[in-house]
Amino acid sequence: MSIFRFAVIQFPASNCDQDAVHAIRVLGHSADYVWHKEASLGNVDAVIIPGGFSYGDYLRTGAIARFSPVMQAVRRFAEDGGLVLGICNGFQILCEAGMLPGALIRNRSLQFRCEHVFLKTVTRDSPFTRSIPEGRLLKIPVAHGEGCYYADEPTLKRLASNGQILWKYCDASGQITDSANPNGSLLNIAGICSEARNVAGMMPHPERACESILGSEDGRMVFESMIDTLRLARTGAAA
């Protein structure tokens, strides 16, 4: 079995970096921290931008992290087709950097929401969802105060028609309802991908749901999708 190397970016006040590294290692792959001042990612197969409160969330969530040296390397990696997953604060950073469309604003309720939610996978046509069985809901925790996804009407239409919406908040039976929406996100959006499909952001935390002792293993399917994508690319290149 091929072992793939993940880079987990560390900003001052990242706090889900260790969870992300742990989750990747639990899945049998390699994960290393990359500090925000680094100008290079080294030789890695995929990048995770973890959750937290980078730079204290000063100015806006993710606004300052986007200008850090490592983000220039992440941008180049993505432009070359590399897989980049932003989780929670990582999603906010990718939006601020313009690598994903839209923005994440204060939750509709003004409350910090910390609970398990259900996600419906909207499309399996992405490196982040390909290995999630058809119709399978994901039970994954959210923990954020600013996760309300906003984009203007033309952007939302484009996201929908390009199949860039990867996950939506739903109830336990898979219905996409307003009461299942923890933050007021437009169209119940929980995660999206870029037009080229190799960059994704999601507010829920799959890295906190990779072991049964944590109450759910559903998060594995997100990382396994990435790993299966990398494996296919490697065997494809070797063939």
Binding site: R106, N107, S109, G184
Partner: peptide
Amino acid sequence: TPKKAVLDPQGKT
């Protein structure tokens, strides 16, 4: 200031 089209729960509260 938040754009008029954007939900402003803080303003509303």
